[in-house]
Simulated assay, not measured.
Amino acid sequence: MFTGIIEELGEIVELNHEQDNLHITVKSKVSKELKIDQSLAHNGVCLTVVGLGENTHTITAIKETIDKSSIGDLNVGDKVNLERAMQLGARLDGHIVQGHVDQVAVCTEVEALEGSWVFSFSYDNTYNNLTIEKGSITVNGVSLTVVNSKEGSFSVAIIPYTYENTNFHQIKINDTVNLEFDVIGKYVARLMVK
């Protein structure tokens, strides 16, 4: 379980394909504090630490994860948003995030305002995922508030701190991002269908 509050930007330093799996080595300040078998969100994807090096950790993405997220699009040198699992008894500063990517979205617009940015995304709405105005959404693991909800698209406003301390400063039009829709909203939507 995560909160969507990014702790650190990691850098992809090595990618190794083995059959359908992708082994990803990430360099970060938090790597030295990790343990084998620990869960860590990478751009919102909960992955298990399988190897440790000096200031690096390695995780493995299987075909299911690669198919449902943008994790397979990573390149050496890319920055990834990192968040360790939340601790019981700690504040929930973002919202409840499972680290289970629901689907990907494409960035359709980046609007620079005076002191902030508005990022717009479109997604395939045939999966019955939805956003609501002022509701929560997780984009690449970042807990955000929806400011413009439409069928199959939404926008989020990004403050300078988030822009600089997550990989939002690298997202461009046509880039693919990971989405995790609000878990409470998903359950309510499922109940309404029945």
Rank of each mutant, 00 (worst) to 15 (best):
V147D: 04
Y187K: 09
V104N: 13
K68H: 13
G4W: 01
H169G: 13
K79Q: 09
S120R: 10
N43T: 05
E133W: 03
K134M: 00
Y161Q: 15
L144C: 08
G115K: 13
V50N: 03
F2D: 02
L22E: 03
T48I: 00
T166W: 12
T131M: 00
G99A: 10
I159E: 15
M192H: 03
T3C: 03
V183F: 15
L40T: 06
V147F: 06
L74D: 05
T3Q: 01
G99S: 12
G72Q: 06
K32L: 03
L74G: 05
K150T: 04
I6E: 01
N165G: 10
G53V: 03
T176G: 09
G10Q: 00
G89Y: 15
I36S: 14
A112D: 15
I173A: 06
K134T: 00
P160Y: 08
I5Q: 07
G94C: 08
V156R: 00
G4H: 01
H17F: 10
Y123W: 02
G99M: 11
G4N: 00
L92W: 09
C107D: 13
S155N: 03
D20A: 07
V76C: 10
L179T: 06
M1P: 04
E7G: 08
V106T: 09
E111R: 12
I59P: 04
S116G: 12
S136H: 05
I24W: 02
